[in-house]
Design a protein around this nucleic acid. Structure first.
Length: 170
DNA sequence: ATCGTCATATGAA
DNA sequence: TTCATATGACGAT
């Protein structure tokens, strides 16, 4: 289901933790990459920018990013384009956004919440497929044994994000 | 304590 | 079609 996102306009956001790279489609923010991670689609193919990203989205993204990095609740998020995900994945991502700052759930609890109590593993995969980490807080999902799970952006980032929110694990 | 097995969604080979 | 996952519960060693 991993289709390439058409019309992806790239923008960078400078924060106290480094420069994030974000991709926008006409429908909204579609991807976010942590500082230091290799830009995937960027280098080879020229992004085809046939639209202008609304200034409001840029402002909201910048604001949300900085708030998240300070462990603050996100009052608003930019428009987001999550159409690259399957229905299952979007359900998981929606549920992730309901987890308050400083709280955690396990992969199993999350599976239960979206009505697929047995799909624990699939939930883990869906978290890994989250195109907008940090703003869609997949770092607040830990393993059932209380230990830190995995993280697509690298374990160092997950640990840092948990620390910012004073979340303990293990 | 560790191991095998099963359940699920999904992309890659 | 088969395999591996950011898991987890259960039963058997």
């Amino acid at each position: 289901m991993k289709r390439t996102i058409p019309n992806l306009a790239c923008h960078t956001f400078t924060t106290c933790d480094g420069v994030f790279e974000a991709g926008f489609t006409p429908a909204g923010l579609a991807s976010l990459q942590f500082p230091g991670t290799v830009s995937e689609a960027g280098d080879g193919e020229a992004p085809d920018i046939s639209f202008v990203v609304p200034k409001e989205w840029l402002k909201l993204t910048d604001e949300a990013l900085n708030r998240a990095l300070c462990g603050m609740h996100l009052k608003r998020r930019p428009e987001m384009d999550l159409t690259c995900g399957t229905r299952f994945q979007r359900r998981v991502w929606e549920e992730l956004m309901k987890i308050p700052v400083g709280h955690t759930v396990s992969y199993g609890q999350l599976a239960w919440r979206i009505g697929h109590p047995a799909a624990v593993r699939a939930v883990g995969r869906a978290c890994g497929a989250n195109p907008i980490p940090l703003l869609i807080p997949c770092h607040r999902v830990l393993a059932a044994n209380g230990r830190i799970g995995g993280f697509s952006g690298g374990m160092d980032w997950k640990r840092r994000l948990l620390e910012i929110e004073h979340i303990e694990y293990f």
